[in-house]
Design a protein around this nucleic acid. Sequence first.
DNA 1: AATGAAATTTTCTTAGG
DNA 2: CCTAAGAAAATTTCATT
Lengths: 160, 160
Amino acid sequence: MTEQKTLPIDSIDRAILASLAANARMSGSALAARAGVAESTVSQRLRRLHDDGYLRGFHADIDVAKLGMSVQALISIKLVKHVREEVDAFRSAAPNWPGVLAFFHTGGGDDYLLHVAAHSAAELRDFMLTYLASHPAVSHTETNLVFEHVTGRGLEQLLS
Amino acid sequence: MTEQKTLPIDSIDRAILASLAANARMSGSALAARAGVAESTVSQRLRRLHDDGYLRGFHADIDVAKLGMSVQALISIKLVKHVREEVDAFRSAAPNWPGVLAFFHTGGGDDYLLHVAAHSAAELRDFMLTYLASHPAVSHTETNLVFEHVTGRGLEQLLS
DNA sequence: AATGAAATTTTCTTAGG
DNA sequence: CCTAAGAAAATTTCATT
């Protein structure tokens, strides 16, 4: 069930991953200095880490509030049971709805969590009405405003 | 209350941010080509976007499951009321607990949500016992395993 | 599989318009 | 904001170990 077919990575790989987790734009030479290897070695490692799926990509961390999305919410969603077709439709549609930052499918029943951003409370309400209240697979929702969102140190600890 | 003191950004800034959100390692010349401006302009814009807080940083997207953390959970936490000191201690400590990927403070009561990763169910149980069950500010928790975690398109839509 | 150094290519910065 | 140009740095290649 779990993905771990490829060979385990070593301390050099972990050092490279840790550096890129902290600063994805770090140059190959800086990565090499931190990992204690040659630049050409870093090139090879990077290609392998990407090919083997350890490195999925590199993303800018952008402050959505500064772009006008000052409202964020976590929306817990329960779906109706035993309607496989509509559940699948929900799963594939939800991440594409406007303002959706993250989408979780969680255990227990047919439970989901959406992390959404909106320009205003009114826009959030419209989102709920448009995409959730009217959706045939949705049986219940619970919305909580996000006051604070902090990235944890779990990843860097794992790589250190 | 909301942060938006600096001048609004224009379509060039948005193009640069959108490109970096998709690929944080994109070169200045590639960014320039996509935004339709000169490289030197991109340098200026990047510096300003960073200085003004639109760009917080750049991070590698790493598959924690491939690193052995095959279990992920969302833990909802309710804190005891009116114990400001302990609530503050919780807030500052939680993001640093091992395996914590993200930490949300949400509205309603004193409610929090932790997104955590663990090597196994046993490690997750140990996490709960060590950091939550014994914490004086925690009154109730609810744990749900994460089956699927998808990044939404809300950000790229906002920037397009 | 990693090194180190050379060679090529690219990037960043500065200045002037 | 652009072009142009010079300096600096990065990436790739490859023979060697």
